[in-house]
Design a protein around this nucleic acid. Sequence first.
DNA 1: GCCTCCTGTAACTATATTAATTACTGTGAT
DNA 2: ATCACAGTAATTAATATAGTTACAGGAGGC
Lengths: 148, 148
Amino acid sequence: MRVSTRFSDSIHLLAFIEIYADAKLTSDLIASSIETSPVVVRRLMGKLRQAGLIATTPGTAQPTLAKPLSQISLLAVFYAVEGDKPLFAVDPKTNPDCIVGGNIQNVLGQYYQDAQTAAEARLAKTSMQDIVDNILVEQAKKDAGQHA
Amino acid sequence: MRVSTRFSDSIHLLAFIEIYADAKLTSDLIASSIETSPVVVRRLMGKLRQAGLIATTPGTAQPTLAKPLSQISLLAVFYAVEGDKPLFAVDPKTNPDCIVGGNIQNVLGQYYQDAQTAAEARLAKTSMQDIVDNILVEQAKKDAGQHA
DNA sequence: GCCTCCTGTAACTATATTAATTACTGTGAT
DNA sequence: ATCACAGTAATTAATATAGTTACAGGAGGC
């Protein structure tokens, strides 16, 4: 896998907080939806809290969103949990005495950055509100199908 | 690391074949520039050959480019060595009985695909010719600096 | 206060991916 | 026939990720 499921799971977590705001939001309950362990959920929440996306109280359940869903872009979530590592890795160990080995890191780095920026721009266009809206639409489709 | 250095190393390899076409291009020589083992180079060459980017002769050195550098995009190289796995991973194991867990895989998959497509479009715009040109320009800058 | 439920973290284990290494088969050139 | 090399399988080592165990400490009911 390229980007770990931390990104995917974090989006899941935020959507869950929104949709199940009325439930008792323990890390255990959230974990049961993501199908992972409560510790993993708490670790993710730690990152999201540090990034200013949610607020939590030690010792108490019920994390809350720190800002409206429409103001949380997928890119913000990405940076919160994965932002420190580039999407494409330049091999850092090449022969500096060779024309290719001595210059490729600089050259490739620029093009890689461009590609990553393009992906990030796309992630920036989508908000968590879009995700939640789509989840609810998909669910409505399923419900409609059942009644037919 | 996200995308393995196979991608970076493959670009390196192709550029090396072009720039050092007059040398005896053994996997050993190429490996010395990438600073890896000859076996790794031969494995990469195997992928690039399967993708129709280079031509090799068993038992003989001197791989050659199967098409002009200007017709080999970074995206083609990416697909050759990494194309089978998505850039962003959707957690495949979520609770189907939950509104979020049951729908997020579909919803996220679409947005992830969009982001990956944006990155790929950027990679498609750059050809190996651009990479080689830039490497030579960078080298020329270094040489000029040395004489100053 | 004390008990219970919970978060926040550290430490450890298990698993998967990648790169590197070893070893071998077989081709092509001389 | 020999030598240099590609091609490739199998193994090892290094690294990243997810999952688990364990525990310290906060919040709130009683």
